[in-house]
Nucleic acid binder design. Structure first.
Length: 288
DNA sequence: ATGGTTGAGAATCAA
């Protein structure tokens, strides 16, 4: 087994998982087959109960189910298309339900959900979402990809809005491809017209958040004053020195779960792993 | 203002 990484201090840096906690990780992995060894490393170091991946980039027939089951994820729900996108929810705990959701008339592997039981709580529904990146130009009139991104968020907002009267606790994670806060980007001013940090996207994301009064679990733990990123472009000579990151990956929970948020961390070390994804894992522990 | 890199999978497309 080739361990791609040796960061011996990693486990020491991680806050310890409580015995009675559900550890949830979201990670845009940018090809699950190419980075199976990194998944194994992550799992060994952090022991997540539920691992949500985006950009698996593999059709279901070729999904590496057996290897992931060997890592302890005997419960798996995934949906991938050829070449790009693709989402997976890997779990050590059984699901009580699974579903796939499709938006803007496409079946393009961007949203799946599972239901699972927490101790002493009603079953929670975990949504794993990969929001379209949106292309380069932040104008829906001229850029079809940006129009798609906004339409995707609008449809999600309508759907979660319709669920509003339900009392089921929800967790929404994924690569939302939007960095909402000023401290979620390396330069608020320089990114105001850059897709991922434009006001119109942030408004759309905020509308989605408000449908179920979702709480940003990471910012619930880490103060908004603190610069925080989960993605650094491959197109940077030295990501660490330039540190031109953005926080595109999120974990949200509905209010009845917010008091259960025990810890949250962004594993920026992972950006230095061998052949890294451009995104790093985001970890949230929920007390049970 | 521009260019810079990576992955899938076979010429570009997506990010």
């Amino acid at each position: 087994m080739m361990w791609a990484v040796s960061t011996p201090k990693l486990s020491r840096l991680l806050s310890k998982k409580r015995a009675c906690a559900l550890r949830l990780i979201t990670w845009n992995i940018n090809s699950v087959r190419l980075r199976l060894d990194l998944v194994a490393h992550l799992v060994k170091e952090t022991a997540p109960d539920v691992l949500c991946l985006q950009e698996t980039k593999v059709i279901d027939d070729l999904f590496p189910s057996a290897a992931l089951a060997e890592m302890g994820f005997t419960h798996q729900h995934f949906y991938g298309i050829k070449g790009y996108n693709g989402v997976a929810i890997l779990s050590k705990r059984p699901f009580t339900a699974t579903k796939r959701l499709d938006w803007v008339g496409r079946t393009d592997g961007r949203h799946i959900a599972v239901e699972l039981k927490l101790k002493n709580k009603p079953a929670i529904e975990v949504h794993n979402i990969y929001v379209p990146a949106g292309g380069d130009e932040p104008n829906p009139e001229t850029n079809e990809k940006f129009a798609h991104k906004l339409a995707f968020l609008t449809e999600l907002t309508r759907w979660f809005g319709d669920k509003k009267n339900h009392t089921q606790p929800l967790v929404l994670v994924g690569d939302l491809n939007i960095a909402p806060l000023q401290t979620d980007v390396w330069s608020h001013k320089q990114l105001l017209k850059v897709v991922s940090h434009t006001p119109i996207e942030i408004d759309h994301l905020e509308a989605l958040r408000q449908t179920a009064n979702f709480v940003d679990a990471v910012r619930h733990i880490i103060p908004v004053e603190e610069q925080l990123y989960s993605w650094w472009s491959y197109r940077s000579r030295d990501w660490k020195t330039n540190n031109r990151g953005r926080r595109l990956d999120h974990v949200w929970v509905t209010p009845q779960l917010s008091e259960n948020i025990h810890a949250a961390q962004i594993l920026s070390d992972a950006r230095d792993w061998i052949r890294p994804s451009d995104h790093v894992p985001v970890i949230v522990d929920l007390k049970e």
